[in-house]
Amino acid sequence: MRATLALETDLAGAWLPAGGAHLSAPHRNGKKGRRMSEAKGTGSDIAVLNDCLGRVAAAADRGAFMQLFDHFGPRLKYFLLQKGCTDGEAEDLVQDVMLTVWRKAKQFDPGKAAASTWIFTIARNRFIDTKRRERVMVDFDTCPEAEQVSEETAEDEITQSELAADVAVAMAELPQAQAEVIQMAFIDGKSHSEIAEELGVPLGTVKSRIRLAFARLREVLESHR
């Protein structure tokens, strides 16, 4: 129970839409060279969510499952609304995604991804499935050419969860213009040219912002090797 409270309060600052100083302030880590996942909050939040999913897998723990629902449900609904679902469709899909989370919980591999990553992937695939926007399913779990490589470079559970925490911190510290395009791609589901159109900037600008943001993440990844 205490874990739930900690989770909800620590993430409170990050619920607001992208933009403004509140995004970077709570997690900013002034000391260079210090592990970012030691920064207050984020690391333990990810651990709490992973732990919930673990409890669902191990013991069909409904309390833990509803904790996941309370955390991800409203975010998933926002995500689906942004993608053009009606309110009713979004509600149905949230139920559908969460049921999939329940059913497939035992297949969740904390060594491979954080709970948020895994759930995001399920939601995205489920949405793509519905809209048939893309015939080619892109799922790194079922991507044979990717799987080949992951055997050799598999990272352990702790590192993955630390990585997710550090990525979250890095995201919060990105310049606003970069964080915005990342958010628009993943949450609003907009293509690069749609983003360019909406922001009124050239396509090349959108691409370079994403590249810069990703370069920062690569640095984070490097620190885990």
Partner: peptide, 23 residues
């Protein structure tokens, strides 16, 4: 595989930062 996993981690982080819509 690592590159894609990193991009997907970014998706998870974006979801964490997403605003919430009341259910």
């Amino acid at each position: 595989a690592n590159d894609l996993a990193l991009a997907q981690t970014l998706g998870g982080a974006a979801l964490e930062r997403a605003p919430q819509a009341a259910l």
